[in-house]
Design a protein around this nucleic acid. Structure first.
Lengths: 121, 121
DNA sequence: CACCAAAGTATCTAATTGGGTACTATATAA
DNA sequence: TTATATAGTACCCAATTAGATACTTTGGTG
């Protein structure tokens, strides 16, 4: 049993899923990597995300302490996003997940191919 | 860009999240580990899950090829769930995620403690 | 005959998540 | 004066996910 921000999790892996799960978070973290991106740049690299969702996910990542938000007080506005140390510590996991997914999709394709061939015999 | 079962993902890590994200899947996989569990046993180790959700998540995991379902044709019914090889290949990732979450929660707690002490000065 | 066990289904409802699109603020540039 | 750029908000609606609870199936047992 683990607690984080008024929520309880059976297993700390559930917490991890809660922090980086959802449709956009892992993608945002992954795109940030060791770079700094402005809001508008992020919309370009993740074209399918709506402004509402992007802002919402960034705020949640910020609340979780995974993303830093640097505001330049100028007009037109300029805001830069980057990973915190904690956010950076996730990169190896994201990388592993990425590779696992890639491999898994290939294997699956491969297995399907075998099944198909077997049926055609 | 990666494809899997009629869905497209920008990054294969998105696929991974799609396969093990959600509220119960990672927990189910983790509880299975290298064991075999019957449906009713699973309900005991994950008490909060409703029968509907448990069945649904198990079916999806089965469709993804991560979980095996072994039906004994007898009455009353007996069904055993276990991880496939692909499912087992996820265990190291789940373990890492688990440890990361644990560590992250501790660090967070620690940082909050520091902030609190700083304020009290 | 009535009841039990195990593994679910069925049905309805609630909560969460996601999306579309229009709008805002404001210094600077043309 | 009007337009522009940037980082968002506001509002309303759709889709997905989750939950509660009751019901089903069927051979064996008392």
């Amino acid at each position: 049993m683990i607690k984080f921000k008024n929520n309880e999790y059976q297993c700390s892996m559930e917490l991890t899923i809660a922090l980086i799960g959802g449709k956009w978070k892992a993608l945002i973290l992954w795109h940030l990597g060791d770079k700094t991106l402005r809001y508008s740049e992020m919309r370009k690299v993740i074209p399918n995300v709506t402004p509402k969702m992007l802002t919402q996910q960034l705020r949640e990542l910020e609340d979780s302490g995974l993303v830093k938000r640097l505001i330049y007080t100028q007009i037109p506005p300029k805001v830069e996003y980057s990973l915190t140390k904690a956010g950076q510590s996730l990169l190896p996991i994201l990388d592993t997940m990425c590779k696992w997914g890639q491999n898994y999709a290939n294997e699956y394709e491969h297995n399907m191919q075998e099944l198909k061939l077997a049926k055609e015999e």
